[in-house]
Amino acid sequence: MLSRTAAQLYWMSRYLERAENLARMLDVSYSLSLLPQSRGAAAEIGAPLVITGSWQAFHQKHAGLTADRLVDFMVLDLDNPSSIVSCLRCARENAHAVRGKITAEMWENINATWLEAQALPRSDLADAGACFDWVKERSHLFRGATYGTLQRNDAYWFIRLGTFIERADNTARILDVKAHLIGPGVAESAPDYYAWSALLRSLSAFEAYHEAYRDTLSARRVAELLILRRDIPRSLRACCDEILQILPQIESGEGAADRGRPVKRMAASLAASLQYGAIDEILVEGLHRYLSHFLGEVSRLADSIHHAYLEAA
């Protein structure tokens, strides 16, 4: 496959995954900010700005942080490169460039998503929840069209690779925002229940938590679920396992001539550290520190993917 094509497929799916996770993140912040007992609603609605590194850009444009301004900035603002519509535009532009490599169903789906995104109602907070659901639904549809129609060739594998690199990064960032609520000496309080349940719901893991633990919510178990459980599709472990499965599918030569060797080595090491990790060790190290380290590893893995496959000379 052409290196440029592979890069465009990979980024198409990263941007789409990013849009979906932004919707998940905004959904949780937004719903928490509505709770009367929420400690510091401003901190809650500010979280997406911190996670996406757009705190400054927001405050340059807006006088103060309110829920409707946040939604406007993070969902609809095309001038904000981190907004959902910006991500959808990038996804669609990449798809446009490789439309010959994806199926008609996939292209029509992502093109329609972009067309509909431009028509999303502005500043209509009553519809914010419906809007987040819409983003998730469009992402599910595209993934379904991909899964159901695309030939299992390199195009498919680069799309999957993009999905899981982005998801590993995003889940870690979403979890990191709540890292201060957990650790030795941090007492668990009632409002934390809402924070953790909202977090689980945003990652579609609320039911899975109860299925897995059959117990009340605890921060320690939430962290374990989202970092180490292989059966939770958005957990760090699941993402790294997927990446490890995907890499050998990509044609890149054999043995010592395999261009993908450094990538595979790095992915295997990352997957092993999760497979043989334990939540108590992680909490002793400090959740924030652990997640920062993990984000660095994912970023190095992404760089090495670029080097091996996407920028080939």
Binding site: M1, L2, S3, R99, D154, A312
Partner: peptide
Amino acid sequence: LAQQMGVELVEGQDLFVKNDYVYLRTTAG
């Protein structure tokens, strides 16, 4: 047309000349 024929759609940057032949830059070399 590229898709209907099942051939690669390339831009100039995807091709290079080496030793009197034209090559595609691909993920496998």
